[in-house]
Design a protein around this nucleic acid. Structure first.
Lengths: 224, 224
DNA sequence: TGGGTGTATATTGTATACAATTATTGTATA
DNA sequence: TATACAATAATTGTATACAATATACACCCA
């Protein structure tokens, strides 16, 4: 009975459109620089221009599209500089999150953390890239959640979205998988022990390594 | 031959409305919890509902207003927890910005930094709260700018906006003014010397002190 | 008296209509 | 052929019209 989905929870069309377009951009279905025309999208989604426009306003503020006055919206073109900048900020936020997690994690959080750490290992073993990406995200999200700082969670979320297109790069490099597992393990143990200093140190290395891999792979490709 | 004559800067109404409403919220002209009704705002601003709605979508994503489905927008009600969360993240970002500034500042930036540091002292001497607020913002902005990380600048800007209403709290406390000057001086010197470690240490203390003052003053007041 | 119920009204959600601007195309002319 | 330019189409920007829904309040009935 999926029919009463709409009855249970109401979502404005702008939210539906927003999520749809964001996913499309993130998944790479729309290419950087590609124009987003309102009527086209509206027709494709079966809605009017109004919700599409409102969704575009939101995407604009998220940095996923850029507006050219009287010309319209186009998918933001992320440069290597943008990517580096975002990762630089991300490292600071991850470092903060892991520090706060050490101080504030509760029993429930610890269980979740252990579970996600295990799940990540399984994902690695599966050698399925999408599963690994998801496993890594889940792991980091548990830590953010344990920080109990909603503003931090939101800020990190937004930051991640803007470079989400390149998230696969650092798990496609299979040679680094063993390191990933070891780093996750060390971070997990440090948090469980409440050892903020160690946790931060490992986390910063962890993010730095990812940074290098992503930047190397992206730079070598020709997408920029 | 193309002449680079100054083009007419066109601003869509949604941007005008957005800026107007944001300022009104930030300045406290709209109180937390106050409803923002589209027709009322549209009439007051002499535009139609469309630009108002788009502006509200943007304010929503910035966290300055919250939407209640089919009920409308209201000014976000910032709790002490929200404030603490935001300041916690801000500390991490300021710390990063000062570290990067140490590594990347150029001659022009150094001159600007010295100038803003001096200007802040003059603002303090003037004992005018708005001037002091502005002077402090300018000082920190120069450091952000010197970090040469646009994503960091944007993220910090957004974060600041959400707690902007309480920005005056920490300069209203005149007893702390001497410390403010000293901290700014120390940070400036550390950056000029390129001593990232010291700069970060002072900056973190600087933000922490501000945090304590703001939270103490806000908690004592009755606005929450 | 209390509580539910229907109706009026206000407000948001969505669609469409109109205006302003930009891009495109075709054509005339040197 | 290349260019200037006018006509036309396409697209965004803005306003308005219509639909759906929540709120308030009066009213009815047990």
């Amino acid at each position: 009975m999926k029919l009463d989905l709409k009855l249970d929870e109401y979502l404005p069309l702008r939210e539906v459109v927003f999520n749809t377009l964001r996913n499309a951009i993130i998944q790479g279905e729309f290419h950087p620089g590609e124009r987003l025309m309102e009527v086209t999208l509206a027709n494709k989604l079966g809605v009017s221009r109004t919700p599409v426009r409102e969704a575009i306003r939101m995407l604009e503020l998220e940095g996923l599209v850029v507006m050219i006055p009287r010309k319209g919206a186009e998918v933001a073109n992320i440069t290597v500089k943008d990517l580096k900048d975002a990762l630089e900020v991300r490292m600071a936020l991850e470092s903060l999150s892991v520090k706060l997690a050490c101080e504030r994690i509760d029993e429930e959080g610890k269980e979740e953390l252990k579970a996600k750490c295990m799940a990540f290992k399984e994902a690695i073993n599966s050698k399925l890239v999408p599963a690994i990406v998801q496993g890594d995200e889940d792991f980091h999200n548990v830590i953010y959640k344990a920080s109990k700082n909603q503003k931090l969670i939101n800020t990190a979320q937004n930051l991640r979205e803007q470079v989400y297109r390149y998230r696969v790069e650092y798990v496609k490099d299979f040679s680094y998988h063993d390191n990933l597992i070891r780093e996750h393990d060390l971070i997990t143990m440090a948090i469980l022990k409440g050892d903020a200093e160690t946790a931060q140190k490992i986390m910063e290395e962890h993010i730095y390594n990812q940074e290098q891999i992503v930047i190397r792979n992206v730079t070598m490709g020709n997408q920029m």
